[in-house]
């Protein structure tokens, strides 16, 4: 399973990752305006660099991109399976399935997927971890372009080992652990930092289990609910209707007996 390791301490803010991403994914080129604006992800920007001032610790550049969760919330909520994680690692999107309900955008704990709000036939847009390149055995465009080795591409397990190695080597620098090792079930994109992740804008309040478990706990009970409630309702309905029918029959019997009392004398005796 492929992933990325992004070391915030090594990033110099050169934007080569975003440039390369735009080229690889046929997105509009990055101009100085985009850089200056303090940009966010958008329908035509799969990754951006955010400039963050962290108190007296100075400036940090933090990449924003899809985290490629191991158990993606977006894939779990999509009613038609338009999003899924490929065995190689990337979480990808198929527009031909999408109905445009935007539950993925709603549910993503990292606020990543973007929508083409001004298109009559809109698509969901997000980083796909260069799935076609990865399938060819190449690294992602961003990792390939990074001159500082701040973004590394590789097997997630190996990247995690590398992160741990760096933490052991420079325990005074990497004081914050790895973001993405456990968050919401773990992510394919891992971050190392020397300043608190919360200060860099990461969602640090996420549970360690995949969010899809929240809804699956309910959905998995559905068959039981249908079975029990269904048989209960059908049973009740049958009993109540049956009783009503019997009562009706008894009623008509009684009235018919009253109108013709002499024709069936043996029943007359039963009643007495």
């Amino acid at each position: 399973m492929k992933g990325l390791l992004i070391d915030v301490t090594r990033c110099i803010g050169c934007w080569e990752c975003t440039n390369a991403c735009a080229k690889a994914n046929s997105l509009p080129p990055v101009d100085s305006l985009t850089r200056a604006a303090g940009p966010e992800l958008s329908a035509d920007r799969y990754t951006v660099l955010r400039k963050v001032e962290v108190g007296d610790r100075g400036r940090r550049y933090v990449r924003r991109l899809c985290m490629h969760c191991l158990e993606p919330t977006c894939a779990s909520v999509c009613p038609v399976g338009a999003l899924h994680r490929t065995p190689a690692g990337p979480v990808v999107y198929e527009v031909d399935r999408c109905i445009g309900c935007r539950y993925c955008i709603m549910a993503c704990p990292h606020n990543v997927p973007r929508y083409e709000w001004n298109e009559p036939a809109p698509r969901v847009r997000k980083c796909i971890l260069c799935a076609p390149r990865v399938a060819r055995g190449e690294p992602t465009a961003c990792a390939d372009a990074c001159p500082m080795g701040a973004t590394l591409f590789g097997e997630r397990e190996e990247l995690l080992d590398e992160a741990r190695r760096r933490m052991v080597e420079s325990p005074d620098l990497y004081t914050e652990g790895v973001f993405g090792e456990l968050e919401a079930g773990g992510t394919g994109v891992l971050f190392l930092s020397d300043v608190p992740f919360a200060a860099l804008g990461f969602p640090t309040d996420l549970p360690n289990h995949p969010l899809g478990e929240n809804t699956e706990a309910v959905l998995s009970r559905l068959p039981d609910v249908i079975l029990i409630a269904g048989s209960l309702l059908f049973g009740l309905q049958w009993i109540i209707h049956r009783r009503e029918k019997l009562a009706e029959e008894a009623e008509t019997e009684r009235t018919s007996e009253k109108s013709t009392p002499t024709t069936e004398p043996h029943e007359e005796g039963e009643r007495a």
């Binding site: 779990s76 399935r97 999408c98 109905i99 539950y103 809109p122 809804t215």
Partner: peptide
């Protein structure tokens, strides 16, 4: 967003999704 394929859940299933 794409109402013309509103019928997709009939044939494209994801039973994990509340939607």
């Amino acid at each position: 967003g794409r109402p013309w394929v509103v019928w997709h859940p009939l044939v494209m299933w994801n039973p994990h999704s509340v939607m």
